[in-house]
Every structure is written in structure tokens, then in C-alpha cells.
Amino acid sequence: MGAALAVEPPPVAAPVEDDQALIAATLAGRGEAFVELVTRYERAVFNLALRTLRDRTEAEDAVQEAFFKAYRALNTFRPGAKFSTWIFTICYRSCCDRLAKRKRFSGEELPDRADPSAGPELLAERSDEAARLRAAIDALPEKYRTVITLYHLQGKQYEEIASVLDLPLGTVKTHLFRAKEQLRKALSE
């Protein structure tokens, strides 16, 4: 008879700290805690920056700038607030500053390119539909495009979008409604 295999218990995963604990740890001098915050939010923040700026390189710079600003101002973070709302707000304002600089220097409307994630060959038709949708979103005015991005692509609630964009709740709802109407019209043509 063969020897019985020793079964080792699965390794115990380190507990996942919530954002508040990571912020406290960062403020206490644990730099790796802030790295964890960056890891959690960098993709979502990048998607917002990319949709807003329409340029991958500028979006990467805006994200880096946003996290740098967040790190430097972490001691001003309000306990109990959502870190995601805070970092989105910082990033969005950074993007707005970049857009204003661009407009000042070029005087033209800015191009937009999202990160297209093409599906497998079997999903070619869906890929075409997704491309049409991306093009329709890209054609929206910036204020509508941003609200659509935060609501549908980032899954943010109206209140959080209002906070990020520093807009009244009613304005966010109106922008979202008008954006959806414009998308319906563009996609039905």
C-alpha cells in the first residue's frame, strides 16, 4: 500500500483591510497600505480619466497626478467618507484642468478614445455593436459623457456622481437622462 498523502490546509489569506484601515495605516507610515489603495482604484480612475481626456497618455498622467495629490493630502481625508468618491473627484478635477489647458492652447474640441476590449471572433456582431455604442458615447458632450461613464461604467450612484462632479443631484439626473436620450437617438439611426 502507498503512503498516505499528507493534506496541508490551504494557506490563510491575509485579511483584506477596508479603505479606512488602509488610510490610517498610510498615515501611520506604512507606504504599502497606500499602494494597496492605488491597486484597488487605479483601473476605475484610469477609465474615468480616459473617457474624460480621450488620450491614453494624458489619462495615465492624470491618474498619476491624482494619486500623488491624494497621497499628499491624505491627512485631510474625512474619516467615514468614501475613498473612491474622493479619488474620483481629485482625478476628475485634474482632468478638467488638463482639458481647460488644452482648449486654451488649441481652441478645438478634444478627441476621445476609450479602451476598446474586443471580444472573441464569435462575438464579432456584439463587438460591432459595442463599437457603435463607444462611438455614440464618444460623440456626447463632455458633461454627458462623464455622467454616463460614472453611472454605467463605474457603477456610481447619483449622489456620488454629484459629489465627484460638484453638481446638484437634479443636474446629474438631467444630464444622465439627456445622455441616454442622445444615445438612443444615435443608435437608432
Rank of each mutant, 00 (worst) to 15 (best):
A14E: 10
A14P: 02
P15A: 15
V16H: 03
E17Q: 13
D18S: 09
Q20F: 05
Q20N: 03
A21V: 04
L22A: 14
L22W: 11
L22H: 09
A24Y: 02
A24I: 02
A25T: 03
A25M: 03
T26F: 14
A28V: 01
A28P: 01
G29A: 06
G29H: 06
G29Q: 02
G31D: 14
G31N: 12
E32V: 08
E32N: 09
A33N: 02
F34V: 01
V35M: 05
V35K: 10
E36F: 02
L37R: 06
L37F: 11
L37D: 09
L37Y: 13
V38H: 10
T39I: 04
T39W: 07
R40H: 09
Y41I: 03
Y41G: 05
E42I: 01
R43C: 00
A44K: 15
A44G: 10
F46T: 06
F46G: 01
N47P: 00
N47G: 04
L48K: 12
A49G: 02
L50K: 15
L50P: 00
R51C: 04
R51H: 08
T52D: 04
L53H: 07
R54S: 06
R54T: 00
D55A: 08
D55W: 05
R56H: 07
A59P: 05
A59V: 07
A59N: 11
E60C: 01
E60T: 10
D61K: 14
A62F: 04
A62W: 10
A62I: 06
A62H: 10
V63F: 05
V63Q: 10
Q64W: 03
A66M: 10
F67P: 02
F68Q: 05
A70P: 01
Y71P: 00
Y71S: 04
R72S: 03
R72Y: 04
R72A: 08
L74T: 09
N75R: 14
F77G: 11
G80R: 08
A81N: 09
A81F: 03
K82T: 11
K82A: 14
K82F: 09
S84W: 00
T85D: 14
I87E: 11
I87P: 09
Y92G: 03
Y92I: 02
Y92E: 07
Y92A: 06
Y92F: 11
R93M: 05
R93C: 01
S94P: 00
S94R: 15
C96H: 09
R98S: 05
L99I: 12
L99A: 05
L99E: 12
A100D: 13
K103F: 07
R104I: 00
R104S: 07
F105H: 12
G107Y: 03
G107T: 07
E108P: 01
E108W: 06
E109R: 13
D112I: 06
D112F: 11
R113F: 07
R113G: 00
D115R: 15
D115P: 00
D115Q: 13
D115Y: 13
G119F: 15
G119Y: 15
G119L: 15
E121D: 07
E121S: 08
L122T: 05
L123H: 08
L123D: 06
A124Y: 09
A124N: 07
E125H: 10
E125S: 04
R126F: 13
S127N: 15
A130M: 14
A131G: 01
A135E: 15
A139M: 08
A139S: 13
A139W: 15
L140P: 00
Y144W: 14
R145T: 01
R145Y: 08
I148M: 13
T149Y: 06
T149V: 01
T149A: 14
